[in-house]
Design a protein around this nucleic acid. Structure first.
Length: 581
RNA sequence: GCGCCCGUAGCUCAAUUGGAUAGAGCAUCUGACUACGAAUCAGAAGGCUAGGGGUUCAAAUCCCUUCGGGCGCACCA
């Protein structure tokens, strides 16, 4: 439970009381009243903007109104003191007993601390990766995959029901190129000399095995047949092989999708026609000619009458083509059908995570979702900026083993899954990210994942030591914390207690990176406290002469480990209890 | 040319989505190891939030504009 919510409720009760006393007009809008930690901890534990929000409609100046509210708040349980400050903030300081109570909550909830019912069980369809099934996953997809995967877990933690979905783009030209490239490799496997892989085909080594597998399965039966006979079976076989490879790559990252939807399948079941008909009936589709685009490519422009979707009615800059020159559906038409399909499967809330190179298509797809769900569905698109791979501060040179990109499996081989995952979510997703192969493995506080893991390991290390100091003692955590009176201890507990709020904020903003920073803060506060024990032996966690205080401090460390563990669980990272080597 | 994203300490990035004196780490300078792991900690210094204008009790955050960087721009996917 996020305690800021419960204190907000208390504040609203106080406002009601003031209404009843005739000190506040009735019917004021309380929606914009917030409770949040003050920026400066010396102001207190919790601040509200209530007086500032209500001063104008109440006809009182904020300080005066603040004093009124503050007076009433003094009798709220666990409130130690109240003050009005600055332009009219009301600051509450909470009693140590309140914080001890929070510690007990953490110890009871364990890794589930931070769970919330905020999402009310609402279903969310989260589509991510959806890389073309034409080769292994490259590192550009890696960030999208990991950010989205962490977001999925995060949304589940706050009470949404999330479906992780992958859209398989197995129709269209790219898949055809894949089939043709595979055919070349098939011929090669049967001893034909295929020479250089022609321009426009997929040259990667990974197709050699696919060609061989087909040769083994089917022998030479396709060898001299015309393209229209082998194209479809080759496409299907190659796509399946690619998807197996992609699933393996995703598994290396710790990612599993629950649903794979095939674009080809949508076409086969006439889902596209159905979706476009739906739009036609609402007069959102028409035949027309688009204006020539400005800038690059204008030379080749030919005006052409096409079937168009009125995305401008939903805020797009231009209407968008649904059919190609040859009359077949565009990718966009398929995408409309796909989102229609998601909606009809019961997902009014949808999130897509894309690479930033698709930024230009966000408008048209969100427009289409509005149209096809008649305003009842909602699509959020999260964009991930590119990752610059570096080694020791210098651009990383690609391996060229299988095309001109870094593969996800190469990254994992070099640094391991957990540091990779952490690094990918450590920055806001729409900001560029530098990934340095050297730095992610550095064992210094400059490297946040190490620093956080180290804090977790240290907690466990202390707990192990304590069992040696008190071999006979009760291992269940303490329930009484009156002896935890040091300011820095309380500060640590406050940070831990603030975790559920951070989780909710991160989920609402769809910004998992916030949690990285918060865990780092907790780790820093813990390391600081650990270090204080060197200057002042009374602050050491294990005090052989004071069993009860030791138990209280160990329970606090256990709580630190739970909160860090809770965060790492969201990240899909295994917490370590010992730093090896 | 148009659209979207971005611009915060020397460097890499935060900033509770409009809140109080804009914060961390690195690098720099000063200090702390007989230890529950010093792989760490304490302190100092560092800012006209790219520039200008506006909105209001309050702006790094919202609006307009200039400059600088990234991505995209019919029929691909």
């Amino acid at each position: 439970m996020n305690f800021f919510h419960s204190f907000r409720d208390e504040i609203l009760k106080v406002l009601k009381t003031l209404e009843n006393k005739g000190l506040l007009p009735e019917g004021l809008d309380y929606d914009k009243i917030t409770t949040e930690p003050p920026r400066d901890p010396s102001h207190g534990d919790l601040a509200t903007n209530a007086a500032m929000m209500l001063s104008k409609p109440a006809g009182k100046n904020p300080r005066e109104l603040g004093e009124l509210i503050a007076d009433e708040l003094k009798s709220v349980p666990f409130v130690e003191s109240v003050s009005v400050a600055g332009p009219g903030f009301i600051n509450l300081k909470l009693t140590p007993e309140f914080w001890y109570g929070q510690l007990i909550v953490i110890l009871d909830k364990k890794l589930a601390f931070g769970d919330s019912t905020m999402g009310l069980g609402e279903k969310i369809n989260l589509e991510y990766v959806s890389a073309n099934p034409t080769g292994p996953i490259h590192a550009g997809h890696g960030r999208v995959a990991i950010v989205a995967d962490v977001l999925a877990t995060l949304l589940e933690k706050v009470g949404y029901r999330v479906l992780r979905e992958y859209y398989v783009n197995d129709a269209g030209g790219q898949a055809e190129k894949l089939a043709k490239s595979t055919y070349l490799r098939y011929c090669e496997a049967l001893g034909r000399d295929i020479g250089e892989i022609p321009e426009g085909y997929y040259p990667g080594d990974y197709l050699i095995a696919v060609g061989e597998a087909l040769a083994t399965r089917d022998g030479s039966k396709w060898l001299d047949l015309p393209e229209e006979q082998w194209l479809e079976p080759f496409r299907e076989f190659a796509v399946n092989a690619m998807m197996t490879m992609i699933r393996n790559d995703l598994a290396l990252m710790g990612i599993t999708h629950e649903v794979f939807t095939s674009e080809t399948e949508l076409h086969r079941t006439n889902a596209v026609e159905e979706a476009i008909d739906f739009l036609k009936k609402r007069d959102l589709v028409y035949r027309g000619t688009l204006e020539a685009p400005k800038g690059k490519g204008v030379e080749n422009w030919e005006p052409r009458e096409q079937l168009l979707f009125r995305s401008t009615e939903f805020g797009d800059d231009s209407d968008r083509a649904l059919q190609k020159a040859n009359g077949s559906w565009t990718y966009f038409a398929g995408d409309i059908a796909y989102h229609y399909d998601k909606y009809r499967r019961g997902y009014a809330q949808m999130i897509n995570v894309w690479g930033a190179d698709h930024a230009g298509t966000v408008r048209r797809v969100t427009s289409a979702v509005k149209a096809i769900t008649e305003g009842k569905g909602h699509l959020d698109v999260l964009l991930c900026q590119i990752v610059n791979f570096m080694e020791n501060g210098k651009p990383f040179k690609m391996s060229k083993r299988s095309g001109n990109f870094i593969e996800v499996r190469d990254v994992i081989e070099k640094v391991g899954k957990d540091p990779y995952r952490f690094m990918m979510i450590s920055r806001k997703s729409d900001a560029h990210l530098d990934f340095d192969f050297k730095k992610v493995l550095e064992q210094t506080k400059d490297n946040p994942i190490f620093y956080i893991q180290y804090a977790h390991a240290r907690c466990h290390s202390v707990m192990r030591m304590a069992s040696e100091t008190f071999p006979d003692w009760d291992k269940s955590p303490a329930r009484s914390f009156d002896q935890l009176t040091d300011e820095d201890e309380l500060q640590l507990i406050k940070l831990l207690a603030g975790w559920p709020r951070q989780v909710e904020i991160a989920a609402l903003a769809r910004e998992p990176h916030r949690l990285c920073y918060y865990l780092y803060e907790i780790a820093a506060q813990f390391h600081m406290l650990w270090n204080k024990g060197k200057d002042n032996t009374l602050l050491r966690f294990i005090l052989p002469q004071n069993r009860e205080l030791t138990r209280a401090r160990l329970a606090m460390l256990q709580a630190v480990a739970f909160v860090i563990g809770s965060g790492l669980q969201v990240f899909g990272i295994t917490p370590v209890e010992e730093m090896r080597e």
